[in-house]
Design a protein around this nucleic acid. Structure first.
Lengths: 347, 347
DNA sequence: CAAACGGTTGCAACCATTTGCCGTAGCGTC
DNA sequence: GACGCTACGGCAAATGGTTGCAACCGTTTG
């Protein structure tokens, strides 16, 4: 009758554990969170009693003094975008394995929002993974100087980065198209505020020059499936026979619109996407795309971040990693259409 | 020179605001978080100074005394499953609109994990949305009695619920198939521990009886695309001409495997999915499925949960809501194959 | 024999905020 | 002019841990 006391409502605290173990609260604290500072036997006993009582530390209280919350913020610009699912999955797994919890934040593509939320919630997490920062280089660097941060796909001086080398993949994609006989290729641009977008475009132009191929830029378009319709129409207005889209969402949207317009893919038009998101392999036709190790990027970002949080590190060792991509050829790319049809149109 | 003090490193606290405003900390606290207890002019002044100083409350400290963390846990059984993306998107939006933050937790389909995490992190959130609880009715009800909880797709006494009425949709799907001439239909089961799975199966059987149609149960299968291959093979071993799958992931996996085996859909086999996840509309062929208002379910779950957290409520008014589904007919269902081919095989 | 020593434990301050309670001033009412 | 009420603001306790410092203890050493 004593164990099922009358105060069954309140959670068991460290004080309960300590009193039952006959030690001071401080000893109980050290036994559970700073082993080595306390006798092995005592620690064992305290641990056992804590388990018996079902004690679990109150994280806000712990955070108050130690400053460590045990939570990491993951900021994405749009929870709906399957690309971020991969990131989220990766961060989630790695965080969980390290005993951290994940605060998921949607910035809704707004730098205002991003900055604001980061500051408002500053005390709720120990560090942040920025999956798609819209912040200016300056703001970002400043932020990184006062808060452990790892950015994904965003290379800025003074900020740890996990970079997925899609630009390099773009070269490969251009080669692939050139080898299929395409001589006029378009890049379907994503948002101009998107950092990776510009990198992809630059590399696209460079690769085009190397292969002496006509390059064009279309857009900007939202990185959404719904923007694919406009993008497809814009593409048809050019002489391009192939296009590389900023991301798979856009590419899939284009595929759908081209089908609706009766344009055969890859017969009349070849499409390449970026990222290889969920769905890229089963859309119609299956999409040729640059496969990015998205989940791995999430995991790696967390690893880098947690390394910064290590007591030893002084936040000084900011590290950047590059993850390779590769071209996955499926059925949305094929030989460039012969000039037969054009000849027919101009007899 | 006084404003850019030497202690620029530390975050600005309520004490800073109070001293600059010439009031006590308690007054500053009330001014910012409990208006009405303090003079309008004073409050205004304090608010202005707080803004000037860039003050943002320390949430752990706040949580410590008030018990309110401003965070809600969202538990999903697999972050990778697109169904949960919808949920997460919905909860995220609604939480953000209400000034809450979201703790995302992946239970990895384990009730152990679920229970454990819920307890370990108990002090880090104010309430939880269980998107796919694997907990027993008893455990779940007990949990709900000591913690604000809303379950999605899980009806249990004493627990607030948002229920997506897919079972009712199953009836509609069966009718649809019957009207296309199918007389032998299979249900491709998901995990047996999945609560919604059983409800769908029961309604499937009932609808089959009503239409005097042969019903079969296949599986259980993992609710994953990869399980679609085994499911498709199992289906082909029966005399069924159509199948309703536990979810779209499974259905899409089946579609892929059937295509690989050279089985025409819907020519030789009709497939219906559940949920209408991302991708169901652009797979090949586009999937006929029961469209569920997934995102709305997430939003609603949060609304219900926050209502429980209102100071006035005593957690007593647990509410349950049902959200309707509807059949979205696309191209994976068609007329039952005529018996011609069978006749040919048995001359 | 006293001082130094290392390992272990306790005391108490501290973290930033909320909140119950009390004092006080100003006001209206009789 | 006294009384009581109300609105406002301050004091201090409390929240549940962490951690610097000091005390203690049995042993070793000069």
């Amino acid at each position: 009758m004593s164990e099922a006391g009358d105060d069954a409502r309140r959670a068991v605290t460290l004080a309960d554990v300590a009193s039952k173990a006959g030690v001071a609260i401080s000893t109980a604290s050290r036994a559970l969170s700073n082993p080595g500072r306390v006798n092995a036997a005592t620690r064992e006993r305290i641990a056992r009693i804590a388990a018996e009582l079902g004690y679990s530390p109150n994280s806000p209280a712990r955070a108050l003094t130690s400053g460590r919350t045990g939570a990491i913020a993951v900021l994405v610009s749009d929870v709906t975008n399957p690309f971020y699912f991969g990131i989220i999955k990766g961060t989630q797994r790695q965080l969980k394995a390290s005993g951290y919890s994940q605060l998921l934040i949607d910035t809704e593509e707004s730098d205002q929002n991003e900055d604001d939320l980061l500051h408002r919630l500053r005390s709720s997490f120990d560090g942040a993974v920025l999956a798609a920062s819209r912040l200016s280089d300056r703001t970002l660097a400043e932020l990184a100087s006062q808060l452990p941060i790892v950015a994904v796909n965003r290379q800025t001086r003074g900020v740890s980065t996990v970079f997925i080398d899609t630009p390099k993949g773009i070269e490969q994609a251009v080669e692939h198209l050139v080898s299929l006989g395409h001589r006029d290729i378009a890049y379907v641009s994503g948002p101009e505020t998107s950092w990776p977008n510009e990198g992809r475009w630059r590399r696209f132009v460079k690769a085009g020059k190397q292969h002496a191929v006509t390059t064009r830029r279309l857009g900007p378009f939202s990185p959404l499936r719904s923007a694919g319709a406009a993008a497809a129409d814009a593409l048809l207005n050019t002489g391009a026979t192939a296009a590389i889209a900023f991301n798979d969402l856009l590419a899939i949207g284009m595929l759908q619109h081209l089908a609706a317009r009766g344009i055969r893919v890859p017969g009349e038009m070849s499409i390449v996407g970026c990222d290889d998101i969920f769905g890229a392999d089963f859309c119609n036709p299956p999409l040729t795309t640059l496969t990015a190790p998205i989940e791995q990027a999430g995991r790696l970002a967390v690893t880098l971040l947690l390394a910064q949080l290590e007591p030893g590190s002084d936040g000084g060792q900011r590290r950047s990693t590059t993850l390779p991509t590769h071209l996955t050829v499926r059925s949305s790319t094929g030989p460039a259409p012969s000039h037969r049809s054009i000849d027919q149109e101009m007899p």
